[in-house]
Nucleic acid binder design. Structure first.
Lengths: 263, 263
DNA sequence: TTGGGTGAAACGTATGATCTTTTGAGAGGA
DNA sequence: TCCTCTCAAAAGATCATACGTTTCACCCAA
């Protein structure tokens, strides 16, 4: 199993990017988002060639990826400058993955969850207005399956269906920016069980709420859909606040690296 | 004025990317998001070299950018395959800009606004919990300035301050994913005046609500902050529904292009 | 009809050379 | 002493070319 996360966040350049270039952008990207390479740090193409044992072509390709993710920019006569976090594309699948793989995974998980809490009620309301017939059917089917699995205590499979349920609503909203958050919801739900925030068996109210959401969307009751979804995410919010140890602001202080200073 | 939108969405590779490569990724990217190049279309590096009069290096660099934005992927022996919209990084500044520059700018604007509506109340609540003293002061200052400009009917400047106000709240939320939506809010507000959805002079209730939000955040009343912000975005929502002509789903049907079929 | 082998297409990688921008240091003058 | 202006070096940007690698499509044989 070469990549634990390959099942999610696909499409971008997972199976495609060749291994040398990917290794470089992966390693560098991770270093940047973890803060090991502080904003303002300066690298050079040549140093990357040497460090990763690759040609200039590969080094440039890897850098190009990081550049388009906003993690660094290249400046003539200077080199490759690591960007400050506010410029990062934190919605890019690669960046999300790197952040989740790094030390402050918890803070990232909290941020993803907060985003999910904000978006899902709105998405449910929209979905109730624009869902197709097929989507309505599928939604009810998924809700029923969640009940079965939940009452049986099959947490793993339950989560899979749960993710599918929420993703479908995001898609049915008709807003591509909401739909694009399917991965975010997936990671948030995944993190919830990973962090041990899930009861051994899902609460009956949660199962009822899922049913209610599916019902409201199927019957095109936007207000009810929003309200029921709000109920669902409010529970998540409560769990989050009870659990809120990590602060998204926290980050180890690091001083910028300037390779030229080492010469 | 070579780029109308250069004032926003900066940082990524605006002033940095050299002109040849940028021209290529810009032109191609725009073609893809507008649908002029349908998903499944196949290009080759060689055709791009010829079409844009650039070397292989530049063509590859441009493609690399589009690839990391999820707009296409390259496949050996096949070429460059345009990806289906669901895989696009619709949160990437470049993609947002291209979508706004294209024909279905209206649909994009609606999506951005819906996202804003979803996120801002949550951000306001968080901001009320975690804002710094400086942020609280600045927020009240901005609200006051909005009142002055609003009552004077200075719509242009009003909008600038309005954007700053909302961006500051997103930042103060402490959630980097919320903070990253500053550009989205900026474009949404910009589009609101562009689409003529703004009254000649902002409604007094809106000015009051901005004051109330600033006050609630400054005094650390999360519930009030959320409620007041909800009031603000509910007005936006109302304007949006009243105006809802465009459907985000709509897109001109196009058949995939395969360059090889033309030979 | 089916199965496998084979060649070419197109991307991936490597390398060397040249162009362009930037900047820092040094020369020269006030 | 300090400021300005010039200039050369540094480092990325671009180009051209060559070779490696994978994948697909086609053909031939069973």
């Amino acid at each position: 199993m070469p990549d634990q996360h390959a099942h999610r966040f696909g499409a971008s350049s997972d199976a495609v990017a060749e291994v040398r270039q990917r290794g470089l952008s992966d390693a560098l990207g991770k270093q940047i988002v973890t803060g090991a390479l502080a904003p303002g740090s300066v690298l050079t193409l040549e140093s990357l060639q040497e460090r990763f044992g690759v040609s200039r072509t590969v080094a440039r390709d890897g850098v190009k990826v990081l550049e388009s993710l906003g993690l660094l920019y290249s400046k003539r006569r200077v080199g490759l400058v690591v960007t400050e976090p506010r410029a990062w594309n934190v919605y890019a699948p690669l960046v999300i993955r790197w952040r989740l793989d790094s030390a402050d995974a918890r803070a990232t998980y909290i941020e993803l969850t907060q985003l999910r809490i904000a978006v899902e009620p709105e998405a449910a309301e929209l979905a109730a207005q624009r869902r197709s017939g097929a989507e309505a059917d599928e939604l009810r089917r998924l809700a029923a399956r969640m009940r079965t699995l939940g009452e049986a205590g099959e947490l793993e499979q339950f989560m899979v269906v749960d993710v599918a349920f929420h993703c479908l609503i995001l898609e049915a909203s008709g807003n591509t920016m909401f739909a694009a958050l399917g991965d975010v919801v997936g990671e948030a739900l995944h993190g919830r069980t990973t962090h041990g925030l899930m009861p051994a068996t899902p609460m009956p109210e949660a199962l009822d709420a899922h049913d209610a959401v599916a019902h409201a969307i199927a019957h095109q009751y936007p207000d009810a859909a929003r309200k029921q979804m709000q109920f669902l995410v409010d529970e998540v919010r409560a769990a989050l606040e009870h659990d809120a140890v990590g602060d998204a602001h926290l980050r180890a202080p690091v001083i910028p690296t300037d390779e030229r200073a080492l010469r």
